[in-house]
Design a protein around this nucleic acid. Structure first.
Length: 508
RNA sequence: CGCGGGGUAGAGCAGCCAGGUAGCUCGUCAGGCUCAUAACCUGAAGGUCGCAGGUUCAACUCCUGUCCCCGCAACCA
C-alpha cells in the first residue's frame, strides 16, 4: 500500500487577482505534490479560495457587481492561472461551498460544547474602514491613528466569541520541542518558539457582530454573529478531505503532511491552527512550511508602488515552465527573493536554453543525422565517469526534494547535465562519424540519451510540460517514477526531434 | 539594552554548526571545438570574507565589542 501525502496551499483571498506570490506558493506545492507522485505516494493536493469577509463585499461593490458574481469572476481567474501553470491539484475548495460552511459550524459547536469558546464583552480601538482592532502597542508610532489606513480610530465596546488559545500554549510548546520539523525553515521555528516562550497568548476573537459584518458564515445557534474569516478559512484543511462528512476518506488523508504558505501567515498556521485542531481532538499537521517573499527590482511588491508582477505577463514572455523553473531554482524556499526581468532572462538563457535545451537538441539532432533516430543500447555499459555522478546526484536530488529544498536539488541535476555536455565534447562524436566508428557512435548516443532521460525524470516535478515533451521526442512513454532514475531502464530510442525546447531570448 | 536573519570577487549566493590551500552561478577576457539555439568545452583576471579586539601553531569559520541592512512585534487573511 502506498503512503499517502496530503499537501496544501493557503486559501487565497479573492479580493484581488492572483499575483506572482500566489503563483509561487502554488508552484512550490505542485512541485512537492508531483515529487511525491514520483515516489509513488498517494497524493491529495488541495488549493482553493477564501471568500468571506467584508473586504470582499466591498471590492465587489467597487466593481459594480454582486458579491457572488465578483467572487466567481476572481475564482475563474485563479483557476485559469492554475490550469496554465499545470497545477495538478486534486481538489479546489471555496469557503462558500455548502459543505465547508456546515463543517465550520459543526467544528465551532464542538469546541463550544467542550468549553473552549466563550462569549465576552470587551473594548478596543477599532478602525471602521479596515474593520480591525488595534492594540495600544500597535498605534504607538502612529499617534493613535490606524496603522493601516491612517484614519482615526474609535474606542468601541462590543460582545464577541473568543477561543481559548491560552489554554493550549504549554501544550503547543511541548509539541514544538518534540517535533523539530513541525515548522520549517528552522529560522521560523525559532521565531515561533521564542514568541511562545516570551508571550502569553491572548484568546482569539473568532466572531464579528452580524450588524457589522454580513458576508460570512453564521455562528451556530447565534445569528447575531458571523464567524471571523481566519477561523473559517483554516478549517478548510479538514473540511476538504471530508471531516465529519466522509470519515473513511478523512482518516485516510488527515493529518496534512505539509502546509505551504508565505511567511506573513506563519503564525496563523503554526499557532492558531494546531490549537484549533487540538481543541477538536484531531492530529496536527506534520509540517508547516513558510516561504519568503518576492521583491521586484529589490523593492517590496505592492499595489501602491504599482510593481506587482502578473504571472500571465511572465508566461507570455518566457513560457510556463521557465516561470516554474525560475521560481523554484532562483532562491532556496524560505528566503526572500528578487524578481527582475533580467534575472529571469538570464536564468532562461543560461540554464534552460544553453545547458538543458541545447543538450537535448544537439543530441536528438545527432541521433537523426547519424542513425535516422534509431539508437539501441542492449548491452551498453554505463560510462565510468557517469556512474559516480549519477549515484551522488540521485541521492542528493531525492534528499533535497524530500526536504523541499528544490533549488539545491535542481542544482544537483545540473551537475549531471554539465557532465553530459562535457562528455559530448570529450567523445568527439563528429570524428567517430567521419571515421565510420558506427558502433562506438551508437553507444555514445545511447549513453547521452540515457543521461537526458534520467535528468528529465528528475526535472518533471519542476517542468512537467517540457519533460513530457522530451520523453515524447525520445520516443518513450512519458511516465515518471523515481525507479527510472537509473541506468539502462530504456533499451531503445526512436528519436523524433521537434523544435528547440527553449529558444534563446535576445534581451537587447 | 524586545526577538530573529544578514553583511564573502562587478552582480547574486555557498562555506561558518563539527577552525587548517576561499567555492558556485552570471558577467568580463583569452583559447578550443563544430553535433548544437553566436550554443558547448578549456583557461585567466578579479575578494586583506562589514569594522576592531581576543582565543589558537592556525579563524570567513569560535569568543567579545561595534557599525550598517532587513524581517517580526498578535489577529493585517
Amino acid at each position: 500500500m502506498s503512503k499517502k501525502f496530503y499537501v496544501t496551499t493557503p486559501l487565497y483571498y479573492v479580493n484581488a487577482k492572483a499575483h506572482i506570490g500566489h503563483a509561487y506558493t502554488t508552484v512550490i506545492a505542485d512541485c512537492a505534490a508531483r515529487f511525491a507522485r514520483l515516489l509513488g505516494r498517494d497524493v491529495f493536493f488541495l488549493t482553493g479560495t477564501d471568500e468571506h469577509g467584508e473586504k470582499i463585499k466591498k471590492s465587489a461593490q467597487d466593481s459594480g457587481k454582486t458579491t457572488i458574481e465578483f467572487i466567481d469572476g476572481v475564482v475563474e481567474e485563479f483557476k485559469k492561472l492554475w490550469s496554465k501553470l499545470n497545477i495538478s491539484y486534486d481538489h479546489f475548495i471555496r469557503t462558500t461551498d455548502k459543505q465547508h460552511c456546515e463543517t465550520v459550524k459543526l467544528a465551532i459547536k464542538k469546541i463550544y460544547d467542550k468549553g473552549d469558546i466563550y462569549k465576552e464583552k470587551y473594548q478596543g480601538l477599532y478602525c471602521l474602514p479596515c474593520e480591525a482592532f488595534w492594540t495600544k502597542e500597535q498605534v504607538k508610532d502612529t499617534e493613535g491613528l490606524c496603522p493601516d489606513c491612517g484614519r482615526a480610530l474609535e474606542l468601541i465596546e462590543e460582545e464577541n466569541y473568543f477561543f481559548k488559545l491560552s489554554k493550549y500554549q504549554s501544550w503547543l510548546l511541548e509539541h514544538l520541542s518534540k517535533n523539530p520539523d513541525f515548522i520549517k525553515p528552522k529560522s521560523r521555528f525559532n521565531e515561533i518558539k521564542s514568541f511562545l516562550e516570551k508571550n502569553t497568548l491572548q484568546d482569539l476573537c473568532i466572531s464579528r457582530p452580524a450588524k457589522r459584518l454580513t458576508w460570512g458564515i453564521e455562528f451556530p445557534e447565534d445569528v447575531d454573529f458571523i464567524v471571523y474569516v481566519w477561523f473559517d478559512a483554516l478549517l478548510n484543511y479538514i473540511s476538504a478531505p471530508g471531516y465529519s462528512v466522509n470519515d473513511m476518506q478523512f482518516n485516510n488523508i488527515w493529518p496534512a503532511d505539509i502546509h505551504f504558505m508565505a511567511k506573513d501567515i506563519i503564525r496563523h498556521h503554526a499557532v492558531f491552527w494546531p490549537i484549533m485542531l487540538k481543541a477538536l481532538e484531531l492530529e496536527v499537521p506534520k509540517t508547516v512550511f513558510a516561504h519568503g517573499w518576492w521583491k521586484f527590482d529589490n523593492q517590496k511588491m505592492s499595489k501602491s508602488l504599482g510593481n506587482v508582477v502578473d504571472p500571465f505577463d511572465v508566461i507570455e514572455q518566457v513560457g510556463v515552465d521557465a516561470l516554474r523553473f525560475f521560481l523554484l531554482r532562483e532562491i532556496p524556499v524560505g528566503l526572500d527573493g528578487n524578481f527582475s526581468w533580467q534575472a529571469i532572462f538570464t536564468r532562461y538563457n543560461s540554464d534552460l536554453a544553453n545547458d538543458f535545451g541545447n543538450l537535448v537538441y544537439r543530441t536528438l539532432n545527432m541521433s537523426e543525422k547519424y542513425f535516422d533516430g534509431i539508437v539501441t543500447g542492449a548491452d551498453v555499459p554505463i560510462p565510468e565517469n557517469f556512474a559516480q555522478v549519477l549515484s551522488s546526484m540521485k541521492d542528493k536530488y531525492i534528499e533535497c526534494f524530500t526536504a523541499c529544498e528544490f533549488s539545491v536539488g535542481i542544482e544537483s541535476v545540473y551537475t549531471f547535465i554539465s557532465v553530459l555536455n562535457k562528455y559530448i565534447e570529450d567523445s568527439k562524436p563528429w570524428t567517430m562519424s567521419k571515421e565510420g566508428r558506427t558502433d562506438e557512435l551508437n553507444n555514445f548516443l545511447y549513453a547521452i540519451c540515457e543521461g537526458i532521460r534520467i535528468c528529465t525524470v528528475c526535472l518533471w516535478p519542476v517542468m512537467p510540460q517540457t519533460c513530457e515533451s522530451v520523453m515524447h521526442q525520445l520516443g518513450i512513454p512519458a511516465d515518471f517514477s523515481v525507479n527510472d532514475i537509473d541506468w539502462g531502464i530504456v533499451k531503445d530510442y526512436k528519436i523524433q526531434k521537434e523544435q528547440p525546447l527553449f529558444p534563446r531570448i535576445d534581451v537587447n
